[in-house]
Design a protein around this nucleic acid. Structure first.
Length: 588
DNA sequence: AAAAAGATGAGGGCGGTT
DNA sequence: AACCGCCCTCATCTTTTT
């Protein structure tokens, strides 16, 4: 939706309606503080405003990239591709080239065509992973590349990024750099859409809270509708970027005051759908120590939208994005669709990846509806097709031919390795279901990235509602060693996925599976903690069935049959918290 | 028996206009 | 404030096909 407007060179499209607001926010206008490289930016008149030739010249001479990389990148793209996306590819290629180990199938292109068998290499052998140790000065040039790459992907202009790196020096972190640019761009002091909760007295002890627990349940049950008139403000940061996503620049928040009761150990990270029925997030927040949720749309991390809320007690400065950066437009993520994409389909991002896909009869209906027109079909046909494409996330795979995403494409869009859910006896239908219920890995990894410096030796992880292991994959890809993982997951198929991933990535730690979250009691936890000393992180996204808008039948809220398992997340987290506290005290 | 396809809206945010 | 129109949503149940 937004990213591809980042290039002022895109001469044609005039974004008529919806997204002007966001674009204004997201894209630092190139006419801002920073000088624009070359004067060609607003040449925009008619066709071919960025020819491959001029792009090549700029990349090779102005920006001093190796010619072979530039040619390779242009080859991957079409001639009419915007400068920015070709640049992105060049940077990716460079990053890949300068990185000793295999990266996930590159940034753009090739993803859907070729499998990358070595992708599952172990990234946790720290010395092979530059990013796992940012302080390490031996690989500054690589770090610099990555920083530039990261900033580019945040929609900063090349000029802004390089000036920032120049000024802040080779040691500066991404956060510092973005901070610098943000400060430079300032002028707007309206970025405080995220206020810290006031520190006034609140129910202090989890003792009390536990007692309130059942009471609260009953209250909710009875009040239901009454709650709606709660004057509790519905906080919905406009662009849904939480404390700042890599693409959102004007609003990076680097500090917050957590309620004292919320601070670790352990660190915790909770996730669920952002658009839950009214009052749900207030309840979740009140149980999770009054930490305010951070609402983020994964469209800032990926080519598909995914609006989710995250409640956690992690630090929020020093975040860094997962590398390699994933493709962030449909075109880059699914290059094969470019050829067939009609101009009247203006989508650049996919909608939320859900658990079901369109059937063949629907795509067939669409094909028939489109046949017989020389040029663009009439408006009513266009509307029908676009509506269905948006509803089912269809992409163009041929003339008049649309298709649902393949499983491996969904895996890629969500940040999982290709074939993550393939084989082992799982059906295609179930793959879509498991994937649709999962994390977006890049988004979660961005939040969890701060753990890398805190736990250089690795972590012990309690993963509730693990699903296909989104948190595990995120941590692993961040280069955070997984020492002991207790994974709670009811679905056997999902357990197999995680187990199989665990083995294929040559994990050195221990993986323990538990089926039922309700049977995980204090005794079991004691056992685990006695054997390896406690949990550093408790993650979980509890069932959204009864919260999600797609559910026609049982959208019953947090008290629904499945979604009420949230209370088990709280119960277990609170148990661990208490035990960790005791552990800490006895040590003193 | 298992997998795939088909049928099934309400709820709520948001921008725009009265 | 209130209203309208547009848009999107980690799905479930039943039927058909494999």
């Amino acid at each position: 939706m937004d990213d591809n407007a980042s290039n002022d060179e895109s001469c044609n499209i005039d974004w008529d309606t919806d997204d002007e607001r966001e674009i204004e926010n997201l894209v630092p206008s190139s006419s801002s503080i920073f000088p624009v490289p070359n004067g060609d930016v607003n040449a925009g008149s008619g066709e071919g405003c960025s020819s491959a030739v001029s792009t090549k010249v700029r990349l090779i001479y102005d920006m001093k990239f190796p010619e072979d990389l530039v040619l390779k990148a242009i080859e991957q793209h079409g001639e009419e591709d915007p400068f920015e996306s070709i640049l992105n590819t060049v940077l990716s290629l460079q990053a890949i080239q300068s990185s000793p180990e295999q990266q996930q199938c590159g940034n753009s292109g090739r993803c859907s065509s070729g499998y990358d068998d070595d992708f599952l290499d172990d990234l946790s052998d720290s010395d092979s992973w530059c990013g796992s140790n940012m302080a390490n000065t031996t690989c500054t040039s690589k770090v610099e590349d990555k920083r530039l790459l990261a900033l580019m992907n945040m929609d900063f202009s090349v000029a802004e990024a390089s000036i920032a790196i120049d000024r802040c020096g080779p040691e500066a972190s991404i956060a510092e750099l973005t901070d610098f640019i943000t400060a430079a761009q300032m002028a707007k002091a309206d970025e405080v859409f995220f206020k810290d909760p006031p520190d006034e007295s609140k129910s202090k002890h989890s003792e009390k809270k536990r007692k309130l627990y059942e009471l609260e349940m009953l209250k909710k049950r009875k009040n239901g509708a009454h709650l709606a008139e709660d004057k509790e403000t519905i906080r919905f940061p406009k662009p849904m970027v939480g404390f700042g996503a890599p693409t959102e620049v004007g609003s990076l928040v680097l500090h917050r005051n957590l309620p004292e009761e919320a601070t670790g150990p352990p660190y915790f990270y909770y996730e669920n759908v952002a658009l839950a029925p009214k009052g749900v997030w207030d309840t979740i927040s009140s149980f999770l120590y009054d930490v305010q949720p951070e609402f983020v749309d994964s469209k800032f991390f990926s080519a598909a939208a995914r609006k989710r809320g995250y409640v956690h007690n992690l630090p929020i400065d020093k975040r860094s994005p997962l590398l390699p950066l994933p493709p962030k437009t449909i075109h880059d993520a699914l290059p094969m669709t470019r050829r067939w994409w009609p101009s009247w389909d203006t989508r650049t991002k996919l909608n939320c990846l859900q658990t079901c896909i369109a059937s063949a009869t629907l795509t067939n209906r669409i094909r028939k509806a489109l046949e017989g027109y020389e040029n663009d079909p009439p408006m009513n046909v266009q509307k029908f097709v676009i509506d269905e494409c948006k509803k089912w996330n269809l992409v163009w795979v041929g003339r008049n031919k649309v298709a649902p995403l393949e499983c491996d494409e969904v895996e890629m869009l969500l940040g999982f390795p290709k074939n993550h859910t393939r084989g082992g006896g799982i059906s295609r239908t179930d793959r879509y279901k498991s994937l649709g219920n999962s994390f977006q890995v890049d988004t979660v990894a961005y939040h969890l990235s701060v753990l890398r410096d805190i736990f250089p030796g690795g972590i012990n992880l309690l993963s509730l509602f693990s699903g296909i292991g989104g948190a595990e994959v995120a941590l692993h890809r961040l280069g955070i060693r997984l020492k002991n993982v207790v994974s709670v997951e009811i679905s056997e198929a999902n357990q197999n996925v995680v187990r199989s991933w665990w083995e294929q990535t040559n994990q050195k730690g221990n993986l323990i599976h538990i089926a039922d979250v309700q049977k995980l009691n204090g005794d079991k936890l004691e056992e685990f903690m006695a054997s390896f000393g406690g949990f550093d992180l408790v993650v979980g996204g509890s069932p959204c069935n009864n919260l999600a808008g797609s559910n026609r039948h049982h959208r019953d809220g947090l008290e629904g049959e499945h979604s009420s398992l949230f209370y088990d997340y709280f119960r277990i987290l609170d148990l661990v918290k208490g035990m960790m506290r005791g552990q800490q005290q006895s040590r003193v």
